[in-house]
């Protein structure tokens, strides 16, 4: 697979798997406004998935739906962060915020891509993600600096999820090639923006990012055990009816 296809799949898989987790909240969120917000974010993410998959559909000889529904867990290249389960609403919010804190500078950088299609895709998506992070940041601050229980739940979610941010920010040879071609932003500005964003927000939220081991692997298809179940649910209908149109 070309470095470009690898990159597009990673972007698309992140959006799809996070969208899948987000969609699990429909009808079960703590207030009606959050039901609406989560459905809306899920909708944006599934739209972005279609765009990223569409970008590599020809090269890979697979339709966007084939990419979503007929690959196994070792073939998905999303980060470990997005597949983490909805342990509680604090985990869902923190997962979203950490993802947004990386996604925004990444897409922002991609708006300057030498590939015009990528730049256009990023231009469209960055508007959606700006809105996502405004919401998620605001809730992180209010709940972190809220009641003792909301603080403790947000801190527990951060403790659990923080190690996976290493997977968001990781780079490999495929990325280096694309950076050299001006196709994607270099690692440093994205990392820096992520660091600033999270440091400032966690200070306001009275939360502390933990030290300790970092986890990577999702970007190379080495997932957590949650991934197989997530795919089993998501892919069940198309796989039961191969060749069918929906």
């Amino acid at each position: 697979m070309s470095p470009f296809a690898t990159f597009c799949l990673r972007m698309g898989d992140n959006a799809l798997i996070l969208g899948q987790r987000t969609g699990e909240w429909c009808g079960h969120a703590p207030v009606l406004e959050e039901d609406i917000a989560f459905a809306n974010m899920g909708l944006d993410l599934i739209g972005q998935t279609q765009l990223w998959y569409g970008m590599v559909s020809d090269e890979l000889g697979k339709s966007p739906d084939d990419l979503a529904f007929f690959r196994g867990e070792r073939e998905f290249l999303n980060t470990l962060l997005v597949e983490q389960p909805n342990t509680d609403f604090a985990h869902a919010l923190m997962r979203q915020y950490l993802f947004d804190a990386w996604h925004l500078p990444m897409l922002d950088g991609l708006t300057g891509s030498t590939n015009a299609d990528v730049a256009a895709l990023a231009e469209k998506s960055v508007k959606e993600v700006r809105y996502h992070i405004d919401r998620s940041r605001d809730l992180i601050v209010r709940l972190g600096d809220g009641s003792p229980e909301s603080h403790d739940r947000m801190q527990a979610a951060l403790d659990w999820l923080w190690p996976f941010t290493a997977d968001l920010l990781a780079r490999d040879a495929a990325d280096d090639t694309l950076v050299a071609e001006g196709m994607i932003p270099a690692a440093a500005p994205v990392q820096q923006a992520f660091d600033w964003e999270t440091a400032e927000t966690f200070a306001r939220a009275t939360l502390t990012a933990p030290d300790g081991p970092r986890r990577t692997g999702g970007r190379t298809g080495n997932h957590s055990e949650h991934m197989g179940y997530l795919l089993a649910v998501m892919q069940s209908v198309p796989r039961a009816h191969p060749g069918a149109h929906w």
Binding site: G27, I46, F69, M234, A244
Partner: peptide, 20 residues
């Protein structure tokens, strides 16, 4: 979570969002 295509999933998310 089980909509059988990306398009159907997007439309269903939009619908449930409308209902809320």
């Amino acid at each position: 979570t089980r909509a059988p295509s990306l398009q159907r999933k997007a439309i269903l998310l939009a619908k449930v969002q409308d209902e809320a």
